[in-house]
Amino acid sequence: MGYEITLATSMCISVVFALSLNLITGFCGQISLGHAAFFGVGAYTAALSSKAGLAFPLDLLAAAAAAAVFGFVVGLSSLRVRHDFLAITTMGFGFLFLGVVRQQDWLGGEMGISAIPGSGLSKLGYLGFAAAVAVAVALFSAYLKRSWLGFSFAAIADDEDTARVVALDVARYKLLAFVLGTAIAGIAGGLYAHHVRFISPDSFGFVESIAVLSMVIVGGIGSVPGVVFAALVLTALPLWFQVIEDYKLLLYSALLFIMMQLCEDGIGGLMRRLTQGRRRTT
């Protein structure tokens, strides 16, 4: 039973993490290839502050704040570069984060930080907590998408120049999307730090940034239920594939490739087509 609880907790953390990127990339259209860095900032902040004696749920707030500060700085770059250039710039920030962490002794360097205090909750209790956070973030996302703020985000994602013409303060909304999204990523990172209780730079690299981006895109960029579903499945998938050990990653990447070829708008798009199809027949 312990194994299932651990897996379920990881799935909840993935949901929070994927939804945080969905806010930036899905809602506001700012593609990011370095999102794992904010997850990392959150994890390191939570680890260090809880080691310094900050009590459990409070250090998650510290993690969110620290990640949001970095998110604001990276968000500033989105005012300067767009689209593919932004993707590469955010990727650069990801590597910069890793490079700094690897060389700093007080951040544990290559060895990382071990013996991070637990949450004080039982394993099941912690799963409950992570699930509650995931549900809260999902509800917040769904609310945001229908709010005026979400509407502005969508306008910017759709066509930035037109959004500017109708007097939207594009720069402010982009920065807001980055701050919100990275703050949530920081919370996910904090949850992760207390979950595995050992963190090292390897957990926050380029591969992790790609993995979370593929959750958002497989889920159907911008679709909240789609992204939740994709985050749950894609986290569990490699573990289900354990049986085929050697071919695990191959199968994973093949699925991703075929998905892009056949239905690029992801699970969210599939669901939309199904419901619309039904409407048309009635």
Binding site: S214, L250, S253, A254, L256, Q261, E264
Partner: peptide, 28 residues
């Protein structure tokens, strides 16, 4: 070629998937 008219991130993700698959194939 089949996905040229789709949004650019589609080709990006397909390309990344292909790259990961290739590393696995070389290893195998």
């Amino acid at each position: 070629q089949p996905i040229l008219d789709k949004p650019p991130y589609v080709a990006l993700i397909a390309s990344i998937a292909l790259f990961i698959a290739s590393e696995e194939i070389y290893r195998l």
